[in-house]
Design a protein around this nucleic acid. Structure first.
Length: 414
RNA sequence: AGGCAGGUGGCCGAGUGGUCGAAGGCGCACGACUGGAACUCGUGUAGGGUUAAUAGCCCUCGAGGGUUCGAAUCCCUUCCUGCCUGCCA
């Protein structure tokens, strides 16, 4: 959640920042008004409560001294009713505020390039030259068919469209990639975690998926549980509500999980093949960092993900997202896009974001800064999306006869 | 899933209607003592909101609701933990 006090005190600055992300100034005006109303409602309530408290103390004293409490009781009863009314008002004001506040996205960093959509993203660098083919490279679904690697039909039969089954060497390669990613991340200092694949609503609100993006999530019927859309949710919320000693920062975590997304709103996009599925595997990095160190941690995470692609021999480029393409919680995001020769395109394979204190405020993750508690910064990024890496290997390592080489670094895992 | 017992500060633990945000202990921090340390002694030590404020005030004893002038304490709901029974990888 964004800092309401900041909006109250630096309204124009806040409005300018959020405008870059496509948020209307009117909503912010409303938010500010609601915030002030809540504070007013609360202080009225608290004044009445203070009165009640002191009268109640008197009441006890009178009783002990054997004085008559009739008059006092009348006063206190009257005030009690007033409190109930004020409480109701405060409650309403709070609900109205949070309904708006929780739907407002994070501020983009000042340095993020301005733009409307992905067209305006900025390529920072390319890593590795794409290989030259002396034949026409196939797309991954054609290769999958030739090798019997992906069973799209039976995936659909078992679940529904946008599900698939990996078979034989593809299944083994998927597993090898997971292990390779986890080992690499662990060597970089990330603790490996194995977490629940379902999380409750409170956690999903902490990282920003709820309440606004409920339609993108699979919910378990009759339970307060959702299938996680990314390991960012359980990993970041590991410390939900906690106060960490400063000496423990940064907390670096990595974990493999399947990810479940309804892909609402992406009808018709990437329907062929395995680019966009309802379930996919991902190895995620999450960092809980000191606010002054989060930029360094961010760079490290980008470099780590890029290094993994390099180790796999996969050409990729590093792209800084523009303000309009930033996700809801992100202040800054760098995408890694891997080269897919079959599609003749770079496609997203990792997305690394610094959410600053946006998730920390929602999830109440803090650290002890001397005597005070301050919000941490949280960061997340894929290292890497497993299914898309599999696709990239298929397309980049294909031979003319349709067979696929295994990258050197993966051989020990197969 | 059923039965029983519980959920109090960083930890242990007292508290069954008012003077309790909470005894005592441990831990931790600072100070005194010391050449330095241990011991000992003293002081301090939850979170959130409002605020210029570490002043005052309000809220929080798992969570939510209720009874009461007044709730950590009584009642209801719910979540969680432990043990027993059942089921199960």
């Amino acid at each position: 959640m964004i800092d309401l006090k900041y909006i109250e005190k630096n309204f124009d600055e806040a409005a300018a920042k959020l405008k870059k992300k496509g948020v209307d100034t009117q909503i912010l005006e409303k938010l500010k008004t609601l915030f002030v109303q809540l504070k007013e409602a609360n202080s009225a309530l608290e004044a009445a409560q203070a009165e009640q408290n002191s009268m109640s103390k008197l009441f006890g004293q009178y009783k002990r001294e054997g004085k008559d409490v009739g008059e006092l009781k009348a006063k206190v009863d009257e005030n009690k009713e007033r409190i109930a009314q004020l409480q109701e008002k405060a409650r309403e004001a709070e609900a109205a505020l949070y309904e708006v506040a929780l739907a407002i996205p994070n501020f983009p960093d000042d340095a993020v390039p301005e733009g409307e959509d992905e067209e305006d993203n900025v390529e920072l660098r390319k890593v590795l030259e794409p290989r030259r083919f002396d034949f026409e490279p196939l797309e991954h679904w054609a290769l999958a068919e030739k090798n019997g690697w992906i069973d799209f039909e039976r995936g659909v039969k078992l679940a529904k469209s946008r599900f698939s089954v990996l078979r034989g060497d593809a299944a083994r390669l998927e597993r090898a990639l997971i292990n390779f990613f986890l080992d690499t991340n662990r060597e970089k200092g990330f603790e490996e975690l194995c977490v629940p694949f379902m999380n409750n609503a409170h956690m999903l609100q902490g990282t920003g998926q709820l309440p606004k993006f409920e339609d993108d999530l699979f919910k378990i019927e009759g339970e307060d549980l959702y299938l996680i859309p990314t390991a960012e949710v359980p990993l970041t919320n590991m410390y939900n509500g906690e106060i960490l000693p400063e000496s423990e920062l940064p907390v670096l975590m990595t974990g493999y999980t399947p990810c479940f997304r309804k892909e609402a709103g992406s009808a018709g996009r990437d329907t062929r093949g395995m680019i966009r599925q309802h379930q996919f595997d991902k190895v995620e990095m999450v960092a809980i960092a000191h606010p002054e160190k989060s930029d360094d941690v961010f760079e490290m995470m980008v470099q780590n993900a890029s290094d993994i692609l390099t180790a796999l021999g996969l050409p990729h480029r590093v792209v800084e997202l523009c303000t309009g393409d930033l996700g809801f919680s992100a202040a800054r995001t760098i995408d890694l896009e891997v080269w897919l020769p079959g599609q003749n395109k770079y496609r997203e394979i990792s997305s690394i974001s610094n959410t600053r204190d946006f998730q920390a405020r929602r999830a109440k993750i803090r650290f002890k800064d001397g005597k005070k508690n301050k919000l941490v910064h949280t960061l997340n990024g894929s290292a890497l999306a497993v299914g898309r890496t599999l696709i990239a290997i298929m397309e980049n390592y294909q031979n003319e006869d349709g067979s696929i080489e295994i990258p050197e670094v993966l051989k020990k895992y197969m």
